[in-house]
């Protein structure tokens, strides 16, 4: 819906990729001359067949890998300082990756701690946020005492506090059971509508992508030279009910046909 309503200020790029090229040594390139702009405060999902390099893209954005060519700019982030890590990005990996030796409080506070915030200040900022993330009362618990969904909430909170304006979410709900996943999607919608960070979300789940996003990007070629956008103009706030909406179903049909076309081109190209 943001299409018509955004102000000029919000139009600033939250993430801007220009001419990104990357290949693993001795392999076909995964990305070649990829351009991508995401306005600040947008929720954007990437949907692609597996093996297309989505996770590699995230690792490039997080500064864990260096591109062969091209630039990546993140609003409010220092450009690749230190050993390539890029502050200003909150990376939420597929597994929750919580540290078993830290409590919920200290797991969520690690980003602030690394940024040099004093332990006490870091903890008080986490404590402030726990209730609205549905984590009230868990601060002294250890990860093994939490359910999968709760652990993902902590992981999300950690990336929310660890980074700046851009959050990278790599299939965060893929390991959860169907019921928990639905409740986590609604939870993420609520939290995001409150904080309005720029989110880049990877998923295999088309319903999930449409429900959450302002825009869905489809990886159309191999190597990926461009991402085909699909604007999801559904009103917010959304709930799981939205998936039953006619417009939702129409968008889903469109997305599936786009995906189907791409898959057949890919298969055609390979044979």
């Amino acid at each position: 819906m943001s299409g018509q309503q955004v102000t000029v200020e919000e139009r600033h790029a939250g993430l801007s990729i220009k001419g990104l090229t990357y290949r693993f040594d001795g392999e076909e390139p995964l990305f070649e001359g990829l351009d991508l702009d995401i306005p600040q405060g947008q929720f954007v999902s990437i949907v692609a067949a597996s093996g297309m390099g989505k996770t590699t893209l995230f690792r490039l954005l997080a500064g864990l890998l260096q591109p062969n060519a091209g630039t990546i700019r993140v609003a409010g982030a220092g450009q690749g300082h230190g050993q390539g890590s890029r502050s200003g990005i909150g990376y939420m990996p597929q597994r929750d990756c919580l540290m078993p030796w830290r409590t919920v409080l200290d797991n969520a506070a690690i980003g602030l701690e690394l940024a040099g915030v004093s332990k006490r200040d870091a903890r008080s900022r986490v404590l402030e946020l726990l209730p609205e993330l549905g984590l009230a009362g868990t601060e002294t618990k250890y990860p093994h005492e939490l359910s999968g969904g709760m652990r993902q909430r902590v992981s999300f909170l950690r990336s929310l506090l660890g980074g700046g304006e851009l959050l990278l979410l790599d299939e965060p709900f893929s390991a959860l059971d169907a019921m928990t996943r639905v409740s986590m999607q609604q939870w993420l919608l609520q939290v995001w509508e409150k904080h309005r960070k720029t989110i880049l979300f990877i998923t295999h789940d088309i319903d999930e992508a449409l429900l959450l996003s302002d825009r869905v990007l489809i990886a159309a070629t191999r190597p990926i030279t461009k991402l085909e956008p699909l604007e999801v103009e559904l009103p917010r706030p959304r709930t799981y009910e939205t998936t039953l909406d006619e417009r939702f179903v129409a968008l889903k049909r469109q997305l599936l046909s786009q995906l189907g076309r791409i898959t057949s081109t890919l298969e055609g190209g390979n044979s």
């Binding site: 864990l64 890590s85 990376y91 990996p93 660890g162």
Partner: peptide
């Protein structure tokens, strides 16, 4: 890697 992405040296 996660800690590295958050700027850990």
């Amino acid at each position: 890697e996660l800690l590295r992405s958050m700027g850990a040296g």
